[in-house]
Amino acid sequence: MIQAIAFYFFATIVVGAAVMTIMSRNPVHSVLWLIMAFFNAAGLMVLVGAEFIAMLLVIVYVGAVAVLFLFVVMMLDIDFAAMRAGFSRNAPLGLAVAAVLLAELLLAVGAYNAGGLTLGSPDGSAMQAADASNIEALGALLYGKYIALFEIAGIILLVAMIGAIVLTFQPPKPGARARQDVGKQIRRRPEEATVMKNPEVGQGVEL
């Protein structure tokens, strides 16, 4: 009973927020509705017992990715009228994307009804999730059967990160910009930075 109420509550909000994401006129509101959808999708994950995935969804998508979205959208200077002017021109493309997504959804439902793939343990049978908690079951899979794929994904992400740093890094041109040496700043003491003078009245100071 309570599970059903919770399910319909979360599901309604997810669908409603998703609709509002594409319907709202202000892009910042769109991003906020999207965050609402993420958050309630996490609620649905908790209901099916995948609490680890739910928490990761909130930490990664809501806590990090969506903040960056929100930043970019807030900083953009968007002309709403110009955006809507191209609607009729882009409508066929949008309809095509929508048709592909609908076909994929139908395919997914058909595949689900035909019975799921067995990806669990080495002999092809599904993972026994009876006693193991979410984290233990996932850890056993990721660091056991899929260790190679997991490591490859890690290396790819590392390379992407280094690539981003290399692309944006500008080596300091000599004399072009003052560089800060934090150690030097912290070591600085009043005695070497200031000087006390006690000049006679009307004499002035020569430094």
């Binding site: 958050f39 609490e51 680890f52 990761l56 909130v58 930490i59 809501v62 903040v67």
Partner: peptide, 15 residues
């Protein structure tokens, strides 16, 4: 079971 992750998730909402 995921109490600590819940705290991390909630505190990342705070922003």
């Amino acid at each position: 079971n995921v109490g600590l992750l819940y705290i991390l998730a909630i505190s990342s909402m705070g922003v």
